[in-house]
Nucleic acid binder design. Structure first.
Lengths: 225, 225
DNA sequence: CGAATAATTGACTGAGATCAACCCCCGTGG
DNA sequence: CCACGGGGGTTGATCTCAGTCAATTATTCG
């Protein structure tokens, strides 16, 4: 399992250090839709996506839930905290078939103590995520659903896009429902907006997939006003 | 300027290390309302609040802006990134009279390299902030304005609350407008909600101040449904 | 005291949620 | 091979929360 060596934050380590670290990780597979952990569970482990896509969700008491992010191989999730009473702040669920590596927070903390460079890399990732989360707060506070969906599609294309048959395909299953829960909206509204985008020729889309045809026009919508 | 020694993440350092670090910080004062930096400016420095309160804001292109957080002494803000093209992701503004200490990102990075324990502390703060930001995303996606305002008042009381004349006073200037921009709402709606809370005896409030009278009832509102 | 800034209140409007019906795939098993 | 069942998607009608526009009333400060 030398997937670890390809992780951005372990890249700087020596091969022998990696072997030692590798031994501490456990590999687990998850079927599509399977829960990896639930928000509120005692937080004891840190995970790394080795293969597949992982959804991070947050649940409101009224039943609605929010899709915070879709993680791709190389990204980490779970708990960094050593506090014994800590719980996971979000729910992690396999979006596709997933292979994940995991380690206890205690062991991971030991690695961070041994390799300060790794800690700095992790810190950089966390900074970027915080900025992205604040960006999302801004969008929810100030933009229309149409603009938020345009933004979200562009972000997804940035992260998950592949060029296929001449168009920019978002390479993960993506339902109207998921799009809605990424944008603080509802299935019906997401469907209406997508129908509009489709008839305007901005996107092409079907059951659980979306491709972007006119990136620049989507950008214009996301910025307008 | 031994305010540094009271900072959570420098607490573990030896006195002589602190003296060296202290020399690298520069002290600046800001009048209420003065900008410390603007979102989009080249990001070159990290700041620490020494005295007063600092607002972190984000601006949308359509003129609305969002109040992300009010920082109190001991909290840091600005840039951690070494990337030379990086820009500040948010705007920092003095909310009251402020005394801030600052250091270049390069110098701060050197400190982190020298004292790995400090890096871990910074990482813990960033984790907590990311969780809080995701919490806010959830609230904006799933809760009503009334619920979001109740939540926000409780959070502010947690952070800034002081017991005064028998009530829990939020110890910072706080206008309807600011409350609105913390909750993704408008001045008028925030005013209506506050009027309702006031006539129900949950809060007491006047020009730029709010006190909480019935914490448990506010909690009930924030969780209802 | 008067100007400026904050807050309130009312009337109107509209974006988007909700409720409901229906279609269209796509996989499964008879 | 086809029927059928269920999940995803679409579309329409209606409703409502909160935004907008506008006028008025505090409150603070010079």
């Amino acid at each position: 399992m030398k997937i670890l060596s390809r992780l951005p934050f372990f890249g700087s380590l020596s091969p022998q250090a990696l072997v030692g670290i590798n031994r501490q990780f456990v590999e687990i597979g998850y079927a599509p839709g399977a829960a990896i952990y639930y928000s509120g569970d005692p937080a004891s482990r840190l995970f790394v996506v080795a293969d597949g896509k992982v959804k991070l969700l947050q649940h409101a008491m009224n039943g609605r839930d929010v899709l915070l992010d879709i993680l791709i191989p190389g990204e980490f999730f779970g708990s960094l905290s050593l506090i014994p009473t800590a719980t996971y702040a979000d729910t992690a669920q396999a979006h596709t078939s997933v292979c994940a590596l995991s380690i206890t927070t205690g062991e991971f903390r030991t690695i961070l103590d041994q390799f300060p460079g790794v800690t700095l890399q992790v810190l950089d990732v966390m900074s970027a995520r915080l900025i992205a989360a604040n960006q999302k707060v801004l969008q929810l506070s100030a933009l229309t659903v149409e603009q938020r969906i345009a933004f979200t599609l562009l972000n997804l294309a940035e992260k998950l896009g592949v060029q296929r048959e001449g168009v920019l395909l978002i390479d993960t299953p993506l339902s109207r429902d998921e799009l809605a829960s990424m944008t603080g909206s509802t299935t019906e509204t997401a469907s209406r907006v997508m129908s509009q985008f489709q008839s305007d020729g901005l996107v092409d889309s079907g059951r659980q997939w979306v491709a972007i045809l006119e990136k620049s026009k989507l950008e214009a919508i996301s910025l307008k006003d």
